[in-house]
């Protein structure tokens, strides 16, 4: 039996906590990319140009159906082959951002489609412009539906950041690997990493749920 060593735990804890900051940065950066790119994907599928909508649809399908890990490798290694060198951080954020953009575009789409057709018609009857209809009528109603998805994928992207360790992004998993290799001890680093993930993702998931409830209430969508 291998025993848990507390002094070792306290020795490596500062390093792991420092790396947690980088994990959060990677998650936040990737999420920002995904939010914007996802919106572009979603809106592109609502345009009247059939080629664009079909092409976007296929790209989204492709990205969603293939492993993030492989996409990370692809983005990182294929660039140099064509003379484009990406740093691990750039490649990592691009890959994870693209992957989650595909998911978020579905969340946006689902939110917009959850608004009844009658709302669009009522806005048209009031002679509102398309932009105004989105801003004043559709988005406020789509938001509570989309909120759960947006929040879940925020937690999802956070939990997927360890995959960036494979191309050398110095986040939590990467640091745990390094610590483990230096001391030939993996019990403490990997367990602590697991606990840090739990400590962040469980409260975040809870917070997302609470905010969804309050959002619905504030918009008067629940009794």
């Amino acid at each position: 039996m291998f025993e848990w060593r507390w002094e070792f735990t306290f020795e490596i804890l500062p390093r792991l906590i420092g790396a947690t900051g980088k994990t959060l940065l990677a998650a936040g950066g990737g999420y920002a990319v995904a939010l914007v790119l996802g919106l572009i994907f979603a809106l592109a599928q609502r345009t009247p140009w059939r080629v664009l909508t079909v092409a976007t649809r296929e790209v989204v399908e492709f990205v969603r159906s293939t492993p993030l890990l492989l996409q990370v490798f692809f983005v990182y290694y294929v660039g140099p082959q064509f003379g484009l060198n990406l740093s691990p951080w750039t490649a990592g954020l691009a890959a994870i951002g693209l992957h989650y953009a595909a998911y978020l575009s579905e969340v946006y789409r689902g939110g917009i489609e959850s608004v009844p057709k009658g709302q669009w018609e009522a806005a048209k009857a009031l002679n509102m412009s398309t932009l105004k209809t989105y801003r004043r009528i559709v988005i406020p109603q789509a938001l509570p539906t989309a909120w759960a998805g947006l929040g879940n994928y925020l937690v999802g992207i956070f939990k997927d950041t360890p995959m960036l360790s494979v191309i050398g992004v110095g986040e939590l998993m990467h640091t745990a690997n390094a610590v483990g290799a230096e001391h030939y001890r993996y019990l403490e680093p990997y367990t602590i990493v697991g606990l840090i993930f739990l400590a962040i993702s469980l409260p975040t998931a809870w917070l997302v749920r609470q905010m969804e409830i309050s959002l619905r209430r504030r918009l008067g969508l629940t009794k």
């Binding site: 939990k159 360890p162 998993m173 993996y186 990997y190 697991g194 993930f197 739990l198």
Partner: peptide, 10 residues
């Protein structure tokens, strides 16, 4: 609540 990769390594 944790990552698949963390679980796998664990």
């Amino acid at each position: 609540g944790t990552s698949l990769l963390v679980q796998l390594y664990w």
